Amino acid sequence: MFLFEIGRCAGNYLWSYVPGVSSEPRKRKKTTEDVPNRNGEREKLCLQDRHVTCRLHRDDLKTYVQLPKGVEENEWIATHTIKLYDNLQLITNCLTEYCTAENCPVMSGGQNLIFYWVSERNKKMRPTAPTYIEMVMSWTEKQIKDELVFPTKYGNQFPPTFKDTVRKMFRFFFHIIAHIYYSHFQDVINFELVPHLNTLFHHYVLFSQEFNLVEDKEMAPLETLINLLIGTN
């Protein structure tokens, strides 16, 4: 049976752990200062120390991702996956005004890096970023609500393919996170969401490493940022 509430370790850090943080952060009007910088400058912006060190709390997230005694591993993984999905969706919802087909015609995650979508018929597609994100979120929600994939009823077991499904989710999550850091970090700054995004990504990286959910080469586009985030824990 799936554990819905495992407390603080489950990852409820983005909105519920910080006083005064709303699930709908206030929006600021776009000004000439909000215009995104050129690609190289955008990448350097998120690597600046004043942004890298911006976190919601200074607790050691490594202790939060470790499997507690008495908790079944798949239940723990399922709980964190859902929490990461929920928190990532909150951030993407704040950026819909700027992540548009016009502004983001492809799903980019860095210079010369484009993420493609492969349909159920194995057809390679090149959707706009907002379309890609919507497809990821819709597909993930469908898996989470599927009792055969994420069991919630007593006696139901996780399928043998559960971890493979989660690994696919985590790859998709990384694509979205990379796109946000690369294409929308100035918007993240404007919305005052830097500590939320950094904490989410830090959690994502540590949990991925703890349970071998994403290969290092998959996260290579943000390798420098990952090293900085972990180094400033």
Rank of each mutant, 00 (worst) to 15 (best):
E102V: 13
E102F: 08
E102Y: 09
N103Q: 04
N103W: 02
C104Q: 04
S108D: 05
S108C: 12
G110C: 05
Q111M: 08
I114E: 11
I114S: 09
W117S: 07
V118S: 09
V118G: 08
S119M: 11
S119E: 08
S119W: 14
N122L: 14
N122F: 10
M125S: 08
M125C: 10
R126P: 03
P127Y: 02
A129Y: 07
A129V: 02
A129I: 01
T131K: 09
T131F: 00
T131R: 06
I133M: 10
I133D: 00
E134M: 06
M135K: 09
M135A: 05
M137K: 06
Q143A: 12
K145T: 14
L148P: 07
P151C: 12
T152A: 08
T152K: 14
N156R: 07
P159C: 08
P160A: 12
T161P: 02
K163E: 00
D164P: 00
T165F: 00
V166I: 05
K168D: 14
M169A: 00
F170A: 00
R171I: 06
F173L: 04
I177Q: 03
I177S: 03
I177R: 04
H179Q: 09
I180S: 10
Y182S: 13
Y182H: 15
Y182M: 06
Y182Q: 09
S183T: 11
S183A: 11
H184A: 11
Q186S: 13
I189R: 02
I189T: 00
N190A: 10
N190D: 05
E192Y: 04
L193M: 14
L193D: 01
V194Y: 01
V194L: 01
V194F: 06
P195K: 12
H196P: 01
T199S: 15
F201A: 07
F201R: 05
H202L: 15
Y204F: 15
Y204I: 10
L206W: 03
F207A: 02
F207H: 09
S208A: 13
E210W: 07
F211T: 11
L213M: 11
V214Q: 07
D216Q: 14
K217I: 11
